[in-house]
Amino acid sequence: MTGPDAPGGPDPATARDDILGRLGAPDDSVAEAYGAIRREYLRRHSEGDVRALFAERVAHYRAVVHTVTEARLPGALAAALRPGAYVLAPGLPAAWAAAIPPDRRAADGAELDAVAGVVTGCAAAIAETGTIVLDHGAGQGRRALTLVPDHHLVVVPADRIAADVPEALARLDVTRPLTFVSGPSATSDIELTRVEGVHGPRSLEVFVL
């Protein structure tokens, strides 16, 4: 479908046909030509312990990283809370949040701009680049949840960590909304000095299981 048109505006059907017309008729060689693209790059850049590499790389972005056992996770999460209420992403495993007292949990429908932070899981992580990928499914919440609050606590189970970008993308469904997070929000717009947190969460705290 093409957008309806306002009186006097451009004729959308004509614009579409014109542009596609200039690009020539469809041909059936596309799939074959696409298959012939040479992909000689590496599927991954390092061998070895992806969890350790991920922890190192994500720390490089000045995120706070904790490597914890499943048993110690609840205590570590609770200890990381700052003053104020935290949103627990819907579907977050109850055991993870067991040590977060009820009065520290933001009420349903709380103003996101007023809460201190948010606790989530993730869909995947990329060791090579220190990236966390959210697909905003269970335990991650809709996109605004991990955007507006200032403190993002994210739990990364070891089996979610892919070695590198190609492997991570192969695990993801790109038709879901996706957010790739590599460290806290940053800008280098003022004399190329890196400043954390212009708009997104200013603190990213990662709990690697």
Binding site: Y41, I126, T129, G130, R143, V165, L178, T179, F180, S182
Partner: peptide, 25 residues
């Protein structure tokens, strides 16, 4: 995307990955 999400951040801001990439359908 596995190619472009590797070459773009390193070429532009010299990072392994830029802080945020959003994808929506």
């Amino acid at each position: 995307l596995e190619v472009f999400l590797q070459v773009l951040p390193r070429s532009s801001t010299a990072e392994r990955m830029n802080p945020y990439t959003s994808a929506w359908t």
